[in-house]
């Protein structure tokens, strides 16, 4: 199956803005699901609320579009009640790290067998561009009109500290790497976390000198650094620019899993 075969044709086009990165991530995810050979009948797509969370509504399979922040708790119930079902969760930085932060760390701790794809656009897109827990310090948003003052979450590091079996970070520029990472996540038992940095020209870019979609994709290209290189530079005591996006696979391990096939 091709990724296009997974779409609900009667639901297209999506509600995403022109230039949004979410579609790229959905395509990568569906390509990965196709590659591992899962059938529609055995996979459930779950999401919370926000732009990213509209994804399951476009996929022709069982799908649960839940309440803000709670997708992982719903998905935990599905997986434990029927371990034969495969779970893929789409979420965003606001949904996962702000209102859903507690469910996030506990789903990692339980190491529930599911794959979670976080489209991190560093902003609340659906509500018009408010600051989120991943909005960089100094960035402008409608609720940080003088620049964000708070620190940010490193979502991938958080998932590792909380116990996820697999964690990777890529961007919407890295289509092939992102697809492969999602596939590895699908194939790794336990909680797999894939953070995908995505461009939001409407909510984030136009307020932060990255007005055109290609501006942000170019930013991802020029500011991404493989974790191996990042680690080496750190070890050598060299300075790494603070706006670097460290990409790659960060952990793949075998902690005991909750909700594996019975």
């Amino acid at each position: 199956m091709n990724f296009m075969d997974w779409y609900r044709a009667d639901r297209l086009p999506t509600i995403f803005c022109v230039g949004c990165g979410n579609g790229t991530v959905i395509n990568c995810a569906l390509t990965a699901v196709s590659e591992v050979g899962w059938k529609r009948e055995e996979v459930v797509f779950v999401s919370g609320i926000g732009c990213s969370s509209r994804a399951p509504g476009y996929i022709d399979a069982d799908s649960l579009h839940t309440t803000h922040g709670r997708a992982l708790a719903f998905a935990t119930g599905i997986k434990l009640a029927n371990p034969d079902l495969q779970l893929v969760v789409f979420t965003g930085d606001g949904d996962l790290a702000a209102i859903g932060g507690n469910h996030f760390i506990h789903a990692c701790r339980r190491n529930v067998d599911m794959t979670v794809i976080c489209m991190n656009n560093q902003i609340y897109g659906m509500t018009g561009g408010q600051g989120s827990p991943t909005t960089p310090r100094g960035a402008l948003s409608t609720t940080t009109p003088y620049g964000a003052e708070e620190g940010t979450f490193d979502l991938t590091a958080l998932s590792i500290a909380a116990g996820a079996n697999f964690a990777a970070r890529w961007t919407s520029y890295h289509v092939k790497e992102l697809t492969n990472a999602i596939r590895a996540g699908l194939e790794t038992p336990g909680f797999s976390f894939i953070e995908a940095a995505v461009q939001c020209p409407t909510g984030y870019g136009r307020r932060n000198r990255l007005r055109e979609p290609e501006d942000m994709i170019e930013f991802f290209r020029t500011h991404s650094m493989l974790r191996q290189k990042y680690d080496r530079l750190l070890a050598e005591g060299k300075l790494v620019p603070p706006d670097t996006i460290v990409v790659g696979e960060f952990v793949r391990r075998d902690r005991p899993v909750l909700g594996g096939k019975k």
Binding site: D62, T66, F74, T76, L80
Partner: peptide, 12 residues
């Protein structure tokens, strides 16, 4: 989370 998990389970 409890009621969310229960709703998810009910859908199976």
């Amino acid at each position: 989370g409890s009621i969310a998990a229960v709703i998810g389970a009910a859908w199976t």
